[in-house]
Amino acid sequence: MDALNLLFSRDVELWEIIGISFRVSCTAILSASPFALGIAFILAYFNFIGRRLLISIFSTLLAFPAVVVGLVVYILLSSQGPLGDWRLLFSQTAMIIAQIILCLPILISLSHAAFQANDHHAWETARTLGIPGFRAFLIIIYEVKFGLLAAFLAGFGRIIAEVGASMMVGGNILHYTRNIPTAIALETSKGNFSQGIALGIVLLLLAFILNILLQYFQGRGKSSP
């Protein structure tokens, strides 16, 4: 009950944590998406040496633990690290960088699968209609929009709930880098279960909505002839 009270009592701290979570994860997924779309498209439609190897690497990276991503970004951004001069450690930018790395493999792999599932004649037809390369690329994106949306939602689901990388590179600083998963971890360790449960409800609700949307878009993607 305490948890529900917290959620509906406009607790500023709680909603600030939720706000930081969404701001960081939305920025990460929106920054990663164009890049992932481009790579997935090239992997699906162009043949070059090392293509299969790249596909295997991205598939393997799907299982990359968040805490290891956090560790790598931490090493890179720490004052002794190669990017230490940027002074980004324990900032939202560092969290965004870590989350971009986390969601890229899932975005690329699922977008690649969506492009592959589409008839390859689509690209050739667009090109032979004299449509310039970039416009043809946008047309193909429209053709596989449901599969790509499913990839986007799966990627977002992966980063909004991850705790390891955000904790390591964000530092869990209140009002600044504390997001939903790191707050849950902290409040639970302090024995303050009500805030943990309240944030857990938000995450569960989000996971439920994302899954409903995912099912819907995957179904639409498969049902289109």
Partner: peptide, 8 residues
């Protein structure tokens, strides 16, 4: 193509 591709 033999079976022309129709866009959405």
């Amino acid at each position: 193509h033999q079976r022309p591709y129709m866009f959405e």
